[in-house]
């Protein structure tokens, strides 16, 4: 369980990206974080694993305080938080296998990692994960030879190889086409359910967020302005998060598919595919 209390971040430029955000993400919950560009979504998830150092507030993961950890302690804590990026953030010149295995760097010493001598169990787990994300046989390809969707799958496999209890996902679909976006979101959702993983997913696409998340948090200028189930997101709420606009085409109407709980049940999924295609 992730607990965030009064998290604030002021950049040296004076920008206050976060103004005291408090949030609890229980084990296994998939939470979508929506909000306009510059609202502090990226800052928020980067403050959780302290890629960005928060100015004030506390972050606790599974009872362990993250804020206040020493560098060494932080490195160990980061192993429990897998991160997935918009631009995939793979090391382009390394192979798929090397990229996936880099998820184990927090567990392996420098020389072992330098000579690529990872423990057999790690390599076996990497093969299994590549298989799971649909990239079996891609081990020896270089990351820059892959398509966007394939790269994001490698990014997901890398994060999962850490055996995390939390996924921090920063705009996973912003560089992908609509169909691939959906496949990636579905994959993330399935993997979280299989492994009981919690996830914070920053996402711009409200319909996708509604489709795949169990909870939606809206962030505006560094403050939480909405926190609730996806089906309660209305035009009013989107106006509160993003500002005035005609929202009628953006959101999924909960009544139309009847069963909002299981998004990958067939009839509902088809209906939603059609609906989301319109947006």
């Amino acid at each position: 369980m992730l607990v965030i209390e009064g998290l604030a971040k002021q950049y040296p430029t004076g920008d206050r990206a976060l103004k005291g955000v408090s949030l609890t993400v229980p084990k296994g919950q998939i939470m979508a974080l929506i909000g306009p560009s510059g609202a502090g979504k990226s800052t928020l998830i980067r403050c959780v694993n302290r890629l960005v150092e928060p100015t004030a507030g506390r972050v606790t993961l599974d009872g362990q305080p993250i804020t206040g950890l020493s560098r060494r302690g932080l490195r160990q804590a980061r192993r429990k938080m897998g991160m997935i990026f918009q631009e995939f953030a793979l090391v382009e010149r390394l192979t798929v296998m090397e990229n996936v295995l880099s998820g184990r760097l927090g567990y392996v010493g420098f020389w072992r990692s330098w000579f690529r001598r990872f423990p057999e169990a790690d390599v076996a787990a990497a093969f299994a994960l590549l298989d799971r994300v649909g990239l079996a046989g891609f081990e020896d390809k270089r990351a820059d030879a892959l398509s966007g969707g394939q790269r994001q799958r490698v990014g997901i496999a890398r994060a999962l190889l850490q055996h995390p209890s939390l996924l921090l996902v920063d705009e996973p679909t912003a560089s992908l086409d609509p169909k691939t976006s959906r496949q990636i979101m579905r994959l993330l959702q399935e993997l979280c359910r299989e492994r009981g993983l919690a996830a914070i997913i920053n996402i711009h696409d409200v319909a996708l967020a509604q489709m795949f998340a169990e909870r939606i948090v809206g962030l505006r200028s560094g403050e939480i302005v909405y926190d609730g189930p996806p089906d309660d997101v209305s035009a009013d709420i989107l106006t509160r998060i993003y500002g005035e606009e005609d929202w009628s085409q953006t959101i999924r109407l909960p009544d139309e598919d009847g069963e909002p709980e299981m998004p990958h049940a067939d009839a509902g999924a088809v209906n939603r595919e059609r609906l989301a295609g319109l947006t």
Partner: peptide
């Protein structure tokens, strides 16, 4: 170099030498 890869390797819990070896040296 692309800082995105550096961030990604840092977020796995890698040590500084590992970040240099995995994210920077290949680039």
């Amino acid at each position: 170099i692309d800082e995105g890869a550096v961030e990604a390797i840092e977020s796995t819990g890698a040590s500084r030498p590992q970040v240099i070896g995995y994210a920077m040296v290949p680039q």
